[in-house]
Write a protein that binds this DNA or RNA. Sequence first.
DNA 1: TAGTGGTCTAGACCACTCA
DNA 2: GAGTGGTCTAGACCACTAT
Lengths: 230, 230
Amino acid sequence: MGATSHTDIRQKLIERIQSGEWPLGSRIPGETDLAQDYGCARATMNRALQGLASEGLIIRKRKGGSHVATHPVRQARITIPIIREQVETSGQAYSHELIARKVTVAPPDIQASLRLESGSEALFLKTLHKADGAAFAIERRWVNLQAVPDIMDAPLDTVSANEWLVKSVPFSSGDVIFTAHALDHALAHIFDANERDASFTVHRTTWIGERFITTMTLHYRPGYELQTIL
Amino acid sequence: MGATSHTDIRQKLIERIQSGEWPLGSRIPGETDLAQDYGCARATMNRALQGLASEGLIIRKRKGGSHVATHPVRQARITIPIIREQVETSGQAYSHELIARKVTVAPPDIQASLRLESGSEALFLKTLHKADGAAFAIERRWVNLQAVPDIMDAPLDTVSANEWLVKSVPFSSGDVIFTAHALDHALAHIFDANERDASFTVHRTTWIGERFITTMTLHYRPGYELQTIL
DNA sequence: TAGTGGTCTAGACCACTCA
DNA sequence: GAGTGGTCTAGACCACTAT
C-alpha cells in the first residue's frame, strides 16, 4: 500500500474529502476498517484521524463514528508576535521608550480585568515601540503588583515591560481581542499620521490560574497588517 | 505515581516549567528518563511532549534533546467565522443583500491574487450582510470563473456567495490578513457611522492546490471585535 | 558516530454514547 | 448493551543532527 506514515495517510484522507467521495456531513468508515484498507495499524490511523479532527475537518464521536464536518471551519493559527522580533525580522532597528510609569489606583474597567480589590493600586506603564526611530506601536499596560511585585525593581528603561514579564512569568494563559480603532488627536501626532487613519489594536489580558498578571492595549501604526495562513 | 494519562503528564510538565524548575531555554530530560520518572511508556511521554511542542512551550530536536522555549510564543487559534453564524449566535437575525454582480476584467491586483491571465474576466460580487436589518459587514469578492464556473448558475440572491462556495469547494487553503481601515464616505454611509470611525477589515484569498478560487475583502462595522483565547 | 526524538506495530482495555 | 473512538504498553527500527 506504499507509504503508511500518518502524514501520508492524512493527506490521502483529505483528498478523499476534497474530491467529494466523502461529502460534507457524511459518515466515514471506522478506524479499524480504514487501517485495514491502508494496511497500517489502528494506532497509526487513529493518529491521522485525530489530526484531521483537530483541524476541524472531521468530527469524531464514540459510538457515533467519524463524520466529515458540515462546517469546513478552518482555524487560523496566529502567532502572537513579540514586537521586538516583529520589527527586527522586517530588517528594521528596534528601540523603545518608556513614556510614563506610575503607581496609582486603576480605573474601574482595569480593576475588573485584573480582579483587583477596589481602590487598590497598580502599576501603569506607557511604552512607545519604534522601528528605525519611527513610532511603530504604542502600548498602555497595567500590571497587578500583588501578582508580580518584583517588577518594581525591574530596569524597565532597558528591558521592555513585555520582555521582562515574559521572562519572569512565562507561559501564562490569556485572552486577546483584535479591533480597529480610529486615531485620536494624540495618536495621530505620535504616528505622524492623518487623524482620519485607523489603528489596528490589540487588547490582551494574561493570567496564571487565579493570578491576574497584566492587561494591555496596543495600538499599531496605520497600515499595519496581521497575516496568517489557514 | 497516580495518573499516567498524557493529559495529566502534560499538565505536570507545564507546572514544572511555570514553577521555574526548568527555566527558559534549559534542557529538560529525555523521553526515556521522563517516562521512567512518571512510570509510563515512552510513547505516552512522547505524546505529552509533542503536545507541549505544538503549543510552542518546548522545542525538540533529535540528538539535541528538548529545551524549554526561550520565547513563550503562544499561538492563538482563531476560528474564521461564518458571518451568518456570527450574527445568529449573538441572537440577531441574519440577512444579506446582493448589491452588485458583474462579470468583468479584474483590476491588476486582483488578477495577481487569483493568478488570472491578464485581460481575462472574473465574477465580481458585492454583498451587504445585515444583523437585525442593520449593516453588519460589507463584502467585495472576486471569483475565478475558470476555477468555479458553476457559480454562474448559483442563486446568489438566496444563498450568500460565501456559503455557496463553502459547500461547493470545501476545505480549501487560504491566507488571511487583518487590518484596520478608516471609513471612507461610502462606508460611513452604509454603516450609518461617523466618518472618523474605523472598520476592522479582513482580506482573504483561497485556493486548492494550483486552483485559485476567490479573493475578498470584508469590512466590519465599527465596534466589531475579534476575540480569541490563547 | 552516537544520542535523541519520530514513528510504527500489535494487542489490550477503557469510556462514552447511541439505539 | 454494543459499537466506536481514546488511550496505554512494550518493543522495535528509523532519521536527523550535534559532537
